[in-house]
Amino acid sequence: MNIQKLQQEWFGNIRGDVMAGIVVALALIPEAIAFSIIAGVDPMVGLYASFCIAIVLAFVGGRPGMISGATGAMALLMVNLIADHGLQYLLAATILTGVIQILFGVFKLSKVMKFVPRSVMIGFVNALAIMIFMSQLDHFVGETWVMYALVALTLAIIYLLPRFTKAIPSTLVAIVVVTFIAITANLHVGTVGDMGALTQQLPVFLLPSIPLTFETFMIILPYSLSLAVVGLVESLLTANIVDDMTDTESKKDKESRGQGISNIVSGFFGGMAGCAMIGQSVINVKSGGKGRLSLLVAGAVLMFLIIVLGGLVVQIPMAALAGVMIMVAI
């Protein structure tokens, strides 16, 4: 890559990339936490993943301006592995997922993804929506009418606010408003803090604590293959969408390798596997983000918010997150 193009990707749109990165970081928090809960892991696992993946892809990704992190599609594939074997096996599977994705990029297999029939993609997206919706039903068990009212308010804000302004993501506004009401009115509803503590510190390098045996490899291999393929399908689909929105081309094989590298880093730093996020990528582009700087800012601001405002984040009611996930499913 020549120096001029590199400068353009990093510094050709500084103000737009910085502002878009901040907006994306704010919107990433509730989704990363919600997807962690879907997977059955501590919220920090999803937040660390979104931080690591965004930072790494800013440097090695093949599609500037595309946002990646913890996603619902990936989270749903992890549920059984976590339930049966625990977090350490998930971290190992995340690393293996990254290795497989790098191989896809090295051998230029990403081109094969374009031959996936449209009917299969529609089925994949619809099945994902149904599974995300069903996963939210557990949060309503044993709850009072207050839970239903807060979910309804969340959905109303998310749906109606864009009709008046799109300057701020409606999901973020919904989270803030519902959290404010729950705290000031002292409503007794489940919160993010009930699902697991948020550690107000940067991720640290660690090796998964698992037996290094062939049996272990065979346990994580099916999950890693599924995560690698689903992650690449969603990432390359998102890349095509961003290509169309920005009238530019992405490097699919480089993006495959980048996704792999980012997942390896995520696994070694306590994060779950992730991939490109269609919704966040669209938010980034519409907010003015087009370059690599937007990813770097999004990742850095995300972790800054967790470290500085972690005490407030744990007070977010689960009703707000359930509302966000139901709207995602819709």
Rank of each mutant, 00 (worst) to 15 (best):
P203E: 12
Q7Y: 07
L321Y: 00
T94N: 04
C52T: 14
I181S: 06
I306C: 06
T216P: 01
V116K: 06
A152C: 12
L87W: 00
G16S: 04
V282A: 14
Y48H: 07
G98I: 04
V176S: 10
V60D: 07
E9A: 14
F180S: 14
A329L: 09
V285Y: 10
T165R: 01
S224G: 09
V99W: 00
A127S: 15
L312H: 04
L77I: 06
D194Y: 02
G196H: 04
A25G: 11
V229G: 08
T246W: 05
V233L: 15
E249C: 04
E9Y: 09
G142Q: 12
S68E: 06
G267E: 04
N263W: 00
G260W: 02
V173H: 02
L202E: 13
Q8I: 01
S294V: 02
W10N: 06
S170C: 12
A39S: 10
F107R: 10
S235F: 02
F59M: 08
E234S: 14
V79N: 03
G260T: 04
V176K: 01
H139A: 15
A20K: 02
M131E: 12
K108A: 15
V242T: 09
F115E: 09
V45S: 05
G98V: 03
G105Y: 07
L305R: 03
A320W: 00
K111T: 14
K254L: 14
I278Y: 05
V301W: 00
V56P: 05
M66T: 07
A329K: 08
K254Q: 14
S50H: 04
I330Q: 06
A49N: 07
S110D: 11
G46F: 03
K111A: 15
S226W: 01
G258W: 01
V120L: 09
L236H: 12
A20P: 03
P30Q: 08
T179H: 02
A276S: 12
F124D: 08
